[in-house]
Design a protein around this nucleic acid. Structure first.
Length: 259
DNA sequence: CTCGACTCCTGTTAGC
DNA sequence: TGCTAACAGGAGTCGA
């Protein structure tokens, strides 16, 4: 599913539209428009304005327009960005193999080309002038000091804290499981129970995971991912992986080396 | 404020 | 073979 790595590639794709002017807004799915937005309000806010830039905070893609409110795009679990008919990534874990035009939930018609969100399961959405202050520090620039501040004095499961977008923006279920597996830390540990050394190991594992999986092509390319199924074995030591619900999410971890 | 439970969505897949 | 029910997770809401 789209996590920070996929959204980063969406950002690069969206940057192709810089300098183009919005000519029309096609929002056939009212449910996809969030925070009381409707198609008319969106059209009147955006039409006639040029794209100034494409930014990203965590899993939120921001399209800045000249003289207009910033457009916020969220992709949920199965959303893809399509610019001028091209996608940024070929495969999405848990997503359908092929695209169906019926799943186009939002479309910007530009003076040259189009920007489209295709989302089968409709868990993404479109925002106008989103509150960027609600998102925590971006996972790509997370330092161990920032991680320590997020985790300290919390009894919540470590995994829940790592996935809390208000504290750390960008990590989803797959990247979190992969990072914890690499760090050798149990996802269910109380967040505040990590000592300084473990916090540094985890911060390094998150950095390493983002860098490595970024070059491999996405959040679904982790070593743990291949065994992320019932009966899967730990790629590191061959132990049967444990499957649990932690922080409300299906979680795979290795009881032999994650403590 | 913190935390967990619940809810939304629908294509895919496991199982009868 | 054909059907049903469970499953997947990002994000918002609500109540203790």
């Amino acid at each position: 599913m789209p996590e920070i790595l996929e959204i980063e590639s969406y950002r690069e794709l969206a940057a192709r539209t810089i300098g183009r002017e919005v000519r029309a807004v096609d929002a056939p799915d009212a449910w996809f428009l969030k925070q009381g937005l409707d198609a008319e309000a969106l059209a009147s806010a955006l039409i006639g304005h040029r794209v100034d830039g494409a930014r990203r905070i965590g899993k939120l893609l921001l399209v800045d327009l000249h003289g207009a409110p910033t457009l916020g795009l969220r992709f949920g679990m199965t959303g893809r960005l399509v610019v001028d008919g091209a996608t940024a990534i070929d495969a999405l874990a848990y997503g359908p193999a092929r695209e169906n035009p019926a799943w186009d939930r939002f479309r910007l018609v530009l003076d040259r080309g189009t920007l489209v969100i295709n989302d089968p399961r409709r868990l993404g959405g479109v925002l106008l002038d989103p509150d960027e202050s609600r998102l925590g520090v971006d996972a790509m620039t997370l330092t161990s000091a920032q991680l320590a501040a997020v985790l300290e004095r919390s009894d919540a499961p470590l995994k829940a804290k790592l996935m809390d977008q208000a504290r750390i923006a960008g990590l989803g279920n797959l990247l979190t499981d992969e990072s914890l597996w690499r760090a050798g830390i149990d996802p269910a540990r109380p967040a505040g129970s990590l000592d300084a050394r473990e916090t540094e190991v985890l911060a390094a594992a998150i950095r390493e995971t983002l860098t490595l999986l970024g070059t491999r092509g996405g959040s679904h390319t982790g070593d743990l991912q291949r065994e992320r199924r019932r009966g899967g074995l730990c790629p590191r030591d061959g132990a049967p992986l444990e499957r649990r619900t932690v922080g409300g999410r299906t979680t795979y971890s290795c009881p032999a080396h994650q403590h």
